[in-house]
Simulated scan of single mutants.
Amino acid sequence: MIVQFGSARIELVLGDITTQRVDAIVNAANAMLAGGGGVDGAIHDASGPEVMNELKRRYPDGCPTGSAVGTSAGNLRAKYIFHAVGPIWRGGGNQEKDLLESAYQTCLSLGEKLQCRSLAFPSISTGVYGYPVDLAAETALRTVATRLEATSQLELVKFVLFDQGTFGGYARVLETMLV
C-alpha cells in the first residue's frame, strides 16, 4: 500500500526490515541500547557486531525513551541505523503517546540531518513493550505524514511490518487518513 503525502510517499510493507533498500533503517531499541529480541535482535544479527561496538563506544549511557541515536549500518544495505527507544505501554496515562511521537520525530530529524531520502520504520513499541497496534499506528502514521507534508527532502518512508495483524492495523489507519 502506497500513499502520497506532500512530495513524498508512505509505503506499508509486510516483510523483513533488514533487507530494505533505504538510506536508514530504524531499530526499535531498548534504553540501554543493549540489543534484544524481535526487531532489535534481527537488525543486530544482520548488521554484524560492529554496530553494537559503535553503540557501546558512542552511547555508553544508552538513549532516553522517546529519542533516538544514529550509527553506521554495518552489513545492511542501508547507510545508517537509527536506534529509537519507544515507550513501554502502561495503559496510556504515562505520556506513552507523546514519547512514541517523539521517537518518530527524532528519527525523521536524524534522517533530514544526514540527508536521507528514504527511511524504513518498524512498528515501534508494539512487540514486547505492549503498545496496542492500532494506537501506535495512528501516532506513527500521523506523525510521519505531517512531517512529509512539510519537507521536500524525504521521498519515501516505509513501514516494514513483520506480521499480517500489524500490517492490517497500519493499513486500516492509513485508509482512514485518506478520507
Rank of each mutant, 00 (worst) to 15 (best):
L178N: 14
E149M: 15
G93T: 06
M177W: 14
G66Y: 08
G62Q: 00
G130I: 03
R57W: 10
T71S: 11
K56N: 10
A68P: 04
S47I: 07
G168L: 14
L154V: 00
P87D: 09
L108D: 02
C116K: 05
L33F: 05
N30K: 09
Y59M: 06
A137Q: 08
V144F: 08
V144C: 09
R57D: 11
I88S: 09
G93R: 11
R58A: 10
T176M: 11
R58T: 11
L148H: 01
S118L: 01
G36F: 13
I43Q: 00
N27C: 04
V13N: 02
G127S: 02
G36W: 07
G66T: 05
I10T: 04
V39T: 08
G6A: 03
D61P: 01
L119Y: 00
V133A: 07
K79F: 10
W89E: 03
P132H: 09
T19W: 05
K97V: 15
Q20I: 03
K56T: 12
P122T: 00
G48M: 11
M177H: 13
L114G: 01
G169F: 05
D45N: 15
S125M: 06
S109Q: 11
D134N: 13
A34P: 10
G91M: 11
T65G: 03
M32E: 14
G41Q: 08
G41F: 02
Q105E: 12
I10K: 07
A46S: 12
Q115C: 12
